[in-house]
Design a protein around this nucleic acid. Structure first.
Length: 578
DNA sequence: GCCGTTTTCGGCCCGACTGTTTTCAGTCG
């Protein structure tokens, strides 16, 4: 739990409470309330500490009096009496056991009560002794499955959640392969992948077919497959050699609309959709919508018609989050989201002048070929020694070369002069003003001392935001998914200053970063900020990362008008602060 | 434990698959 933001720690605490109550055998609606609260905190992007101090936690839906009180106690004292009492009763180490696939709360409780198994080590030795198969409801197959799963616990060689581009490459491969099968009428990615979540638990693929057996057979013959996890007539799970798990679900073609909606999730979105249907006297499942009185089944050829039928605007997958979007859709208040086709330029990339792989020319050509009208070159400044950063003189030489190339492109494409300048530990920049003022666009970034305390790093970023020479703050949180935590920053203060100063916030599309994260995009949008989506490409191939940045922007609810690289180059230059 | 243009009390989604079963509980999404 250490080394996380307050919100992160509170979320973990609430989730732990939920799981421990579940093992205890508490009412599952109460348990759900804790999970729901944790999820909504995460999605809100709000500063939990500040909210707790100002007694405004109930502004987050799903947080009522009881949970609010617990969060306040935890935030102000660093402890929670209720939790301490709870783990006295139900050992905290049982939480690890519920992480083992096949072990849910009921089985963990049985292991604990019957065999005094409290942690992974004691589970491991019980499995080796063969004692757990004797328990009621357990058997040799389950014991063997647990042994298997203990051996390849995630977090070691296989990260728990996959990065978006890895998951998509598997999905594209499956869709391409199965798409050639005549038995497949329709096929689509679903789940968190389709919702463009920053990391993916497993790859979900939905198929419409009248011959599920043929499709399943094809799926199981993929040569990249390592292992069959589960195989049924309409649902199959496999694991690939690279550790990624893929689930295939097959439904009859007439169920396509309801099935794609259901299989895309999120879980919470589906719960709210089904509740809404029930209020209208209809029951929704993945096959159809059933009018309860008449028993009549309604089928939908596409998702859009299902949403319409329920009186909603179509909700794009990226917005299907905690159910609050359903209320928005019922009022016709959903934003019109930015699309890939809106993007006209890329505002961060690197060349072989610093740590990139390709030349200025080949980056420009790749960008032009992918339909972009302009590309901002942002090699590192010299402060970032590991990345062969450029000095002022080198930047001037690069500018000459850029002018030459632009002349050649005759206005059909334009390279813009920029830099990714280092924000030093004291908030100053490592290039002089006369150098920076010569450039078209200045992108500033923090790469070191990200672990500074909240006060220090906030001040440092604020200084950059308020600097009239800085147009864009790159990858603001500095996180690396699965490996480096976000910096602990007072985001509200930073976003407010960015909005006031006209400094743009980057949505870095590199799938290892995806920074800003969507919850902070939502918050920044509310505070009036504008954005750029940039690939930070270090090779011409990486210019294709744009789709992931657009996905993140869509999850954050952004329209093209809030993203400046949807503008033509002239219009872009006129928007920039002087 | 939360929530309310049907409710401040009485609701709170729904189905597939597995492994244990003699008709179903547990897990998962």
């Amino acid at each position: 739990m250490e080394n996380k933001s307050t919100a992160g720690r509170v979320e973990k605490l609430l989730e732990n409470i939920a799981t421990l109550l579940e093992i205890k055998g508490e009412d599952h609606f109460r348990i759900n309330a804790y999970r729901n609260a944790a999820e909504n905190i995460s999605l809100s992007g709000l500063d939990i500490k500040k909210l707790a101090e100002e007694d405004r936690l109930d502004e987050i839906s799903g947080i009522g009096e009881a949970i609010s009180e617990k969060i306040r106690e935890y935030v102000t004292t660093g402890r929670l009496k209720y939790y301490e009492d709870l783990i006295n009763e139900v050992p905290e180490s049982l939480l690890d056991l519920t992480e083992v696939p096949g072990l849910g709360p009921k089985r963990v409780k049985a292991l604990w009560k019957e065999l005094d198994i409290k942690d992974i080590q004691s589970l491991d030795s019980a499995v080796e002794e063969g004692s757990i198969q004797k328990l009621d409801g357990f058997g040799p197959k389950l014991q063997e499955k647990i042994r298997e799963n203990l051996r390849k616990r995630p977090g070691k060689e296989v990260p728990k959640r996959q990065l978006l581009h890895h998951a998509w490459s598997i999905a594209d491969l499956i869709i391409d392969r199965l798409g050639k099968n005549n038995a497949v009428k329709k096929i689509s990615a679903a789940g968190s992948l389709r919702r463009m979540k920053e990391t993916i638990g497993d790859v979900d693929i939905l198929v419409a077919s009248e011959e599920p057996g043929k499709v399943t057979e094809d799926f199981l013959s993929l040569e990249e497959m390592d292992q069959i996890i589960m195989k049924g007539s309409t649902r199959t799970s496999i694991r690939f050699y690279n550790g990624i798990q893929a689930d295939l679900r097959i439904v009859p073609p007439e169920s396509w609309g309801t099935a794609l909606q259901y299989f895309t999730g999120s879980q919470e979105h589906n719960v709210k959709m089904r509740e809404l249907a029930l209020k209208k006297g209809q029951s929704l499942n993945e096959y159809s919508l059933i009018r309860q009185k008449a028993g009549e089944k309604l089928f939908f050829s596409e998702e859009k018609k299902l949403y319409e039928h329920l009186g909603l605007q179509y909700i794009p997958p990226e917005l299907r989050q905690n159910g609050s979007e359903i209320l928005q859709a019922s009022r016709g208040e959903l934003p019109v989201l930015v699309e890939m086709g809106h993007i006209r330029g890329d505002l961060q990339c690197h060349t072989d002048w610093s740590d990139g792989q390709n030349t200025l020319q080949s980056m420009a050509e790749a960008a032009a070929n992918s339909g972009l009208e302009y590309l901002l070159i942002t090699d590192h400044s010299f402060g970032l020694g590991v990345a062969k950063g450029l000095s002022g003189t080198e930047l001037k030489n690069q500018a000459t070369r850029i002018d030459e190339l632009n002349e050649k492109y005759e206005g059909k494409f334009r390279l813009l002069k920029g830099v990714e300048v280092e924000i030093k530990a004291d908030g100053s920049l490592d290039l002089r003003e006369e150098i920076l003022s010569e450039l078209d666009i200045v992108v500033a970034a923090v790469h070191s001392s990200l672990g500074q305390g909240r006060g220090k790093i906030t001040e440092r970023l604020l200084k950059a935001v308020e600097n009239p020479l800085v147009h864009v703050i790159a990858h603001p949180t500095g996180r690396f998914l699965n490996s480096r935590e976000e910096a602990d920053v007072d985001w509200d203060a930073l976003f407010t200053a960015a909005a006031e100063n006209g400094t743009l916030l980057e949505i870095n599309a590199n799938p290892r970063r995806l920074d800003l994260p969507d919850r902070l995009i939502r918050r920044a949008l509310k505070l009036g900020c504008r954005f750029v989506i940039s690939t930070d490409a270090h090779s011409s191939e990486e210019l294709d990362y744009m789709r992931f940045g657009v996905g993140m922007a869509r999850r954050g609810g952004l329209s093209s008008k809030e993203i400046v690289n949807t503008e033509s180059v002239d219009s872009l230059m006129s928007i920039l602060k002087k």
